[in-house]
C-alpha cells in the first residue's frame, strides 16, 4: 500500500536546488510533492512524482545520487485536527515517525500526509483500523 518517494543528495550552496529543479523541469517531470531537509553542508530533497522510474532515470543522467524509499501516504479531510488524528493512530501502534510532510490535494478537497515511519505494516494496520484512508501511488499520480 505504501508509496515510492525519491530522495536526492544536493550540496548546500546557492544554486544547487535550482539546478535540481531545472534538471527535472527540462525533462518535463511533474512533481506532486517536494520537501527539503538540510544538514550543515548538504541537503536531502524528497520528491513524490507522477512517474518514479522516469524521474529516477532523469536524475541519474543528470549525475545525481538518489534512492527510492517507501513512505506511507494518508488522505485526510482538510479540517482542523486532521493531522492530529493520523499521528495518534500511528502513535497507538508505537511506531516512530522519522519525518513527515503534507500537501493539499487541490480540487479533491483533501490534504495528504506523507510519512516515513519505522514500521510501515504496523502503522498502516493501525491507520486502517481507525478508518483512515491510505492513498495509493496512482491516486497521487492522478491529482
Amino acid at each position: 500500500m505504501s508509496v515510492k518517494q525519491i530522495s536526492v543528495f544536493i550540496e548546500n550552496r546557492p544554486g544547487t536546488l535550482m539546478e535540481l529543479s531545472k534538471a527535472l523541469s527540462d525533462k518535463g517531470i511533474d512533481m506532486r510533492a517536494f520537501s527539503l531537509a538540510e544538514a550543515n553542508d548538504f541537503g536531502l530533497a524528497r520528491i513524490i512524482v507522477r512517474d518514479v522510474d522516469e524521474a529516477t532515470e532523469v536524475l541519474k543522467e543528470a549525475g545525481y545520487v538518489s534512492s527510492l524509499s517507501e513512505v506511507v501516504a494518508v488522505a485526510v479531510p482538510d479540517v482542523s485536527g486532521g493531522l492530529f488524528r493520523i499521528l495518534s493512530y500511528i502513535t497507538e501502534a508505537n511506531v516512530n515517525v522519522e519525518y513527515l510532510y503534507c500537501f493539499l490535494g487541490g480540487r479533491s478537497g483533501k490534504a495528504y500526509v506523507i510519512c516515513k515511519v519505522s514500521d510501515i505494516p504496523a502503522a498502516e494496520a493501525s491507520l486502517k483500523k481507525h478508518g483512515a484512508r491510505l492513498a495509493t501511488q496512482s491516486e497521487l499520480s492522478q491529482l
Binding site: R46, V65, S66, S67
Partner: peptide
C-alpha cells in the same frame, strides 16, 4: 558522495 554512501536519512549520511 557515492551511491553506496547515500541513504534517505540525514543521520546515515
Amino acid at each position: 558522495l557515492t551511491p553506496e554512501m547515500f541513504a534517505d536519512s540525514m543521520g546515515a549520511i
